[in-house]
């Protein structure tokens, strides 16, 4: 192995894999593999070791200019420091929530924050409607205003069990436990195979072989 990889210059925001592995469901070698993925994503447009929103959009949609409400929300939640970029530590800690072994409570809480568009601590009816409209727009689906109102009303009356016009975290948790498919997208099976998809030793081995 040698010590070549540890001598490489790490980018700002880089954190040691042992630290990140201790705080997340990932092993050290999985964090190292995630660093390979991170390097790829963070250098796709601006090679500065940070994931910018356009790079995130490019990875998700193969289009750097495609705006999407939900991708924006994910980006904002990953960008814990709120400085407009995703650093490596933020990337790993946030993806940890999507690990198949991460606690369900963490996934439920993350989804709540995702849908609490205006950071009020509640999912409000207007927010739910805004998200439904965004999804319909994204999918080129057309529904009449009446039907949209009915969908939102029905869902809201099912989830807002206290009937106060907003969904709190407790109501959200009960609603998700009743409808587990709502957080299906909070689990990425890929994360269990990340060391196979992005083996972290390939590049440095190649460099050593060529020397």
């Amino acid at each position: 192995m040698g010590c070549y990889p540890s001598k490489q210059v790490k980018t700002p925001g880089y954190e040691e894999p042992t630290v990140l592995a201790a705080e997340t469901p990932f092993t050290v070698s999985e964090v190292e593999a995630l660093y390979e993925l991170f390097k790829k994503l963070s250098s796709s447009i601006i090679d500065d070791g940070l994931i910018h929103k356009e790079e995130f959009q490019l990875a998700l949609f193969k289009n750097r200019n495609k705006r999407n409400l939900f991708a924006d929300r994910i980006f904002d939640l990953f960008d814990v420091k709120r400085n407009g970029v995703i650093e490596f530590g933020e990337f790993v800690r946030s993806l940890g929530i999507f690990h198949p072994n991460a606690p369900v409570e963490d996934k439920i809480a993350f989804a709540f924050r995702l849908y609490d568009l205006r950071h009020t601590g509640f999912i409000e009816r207007e927010e739910l409607k805004e998200m439904v409209l965004a999804l319909l727009h994204e999918s080129d689906l057309i529904l009449s205003d009446d039907v949209i109102e009915q969908i939102v009303d029905k869902t809201f009356s099912d989830a807002d069990t206290k009937g106060d016009g907003k969904i709190d975290q407790e109501e959200w948790k009960a609603f998700v436990l009743k409808h587990p498919s709502l957080i299906k997208n909070m689990t990425l099976p890929y994360l269990k195979d990340i060391t196979i998809v992005f083996p972290s030793f390939v590049l440095s081995s190649e460099v050593e072989d060529s020397e």
Binding site: N68, Y115, E138, L143, I151, K154, S181, L182, L188, V197
Partner: peptide, 26 residues
């Protein structure tokens, strides 16, 4: 399925913007 029986959260969870699996495509 009639639209009124759709769960709005189920609907929005299908957004491509929430499907992070595309990050892993080589």
């Amino acid at each position: 399925t009639a639209p009124v029986t759709m769960n709005a959260f189920e609907l929005i969870s299908t957004s491509q913007g929430l499907n992070l699996s595309s990050l892993f495509e080589k």
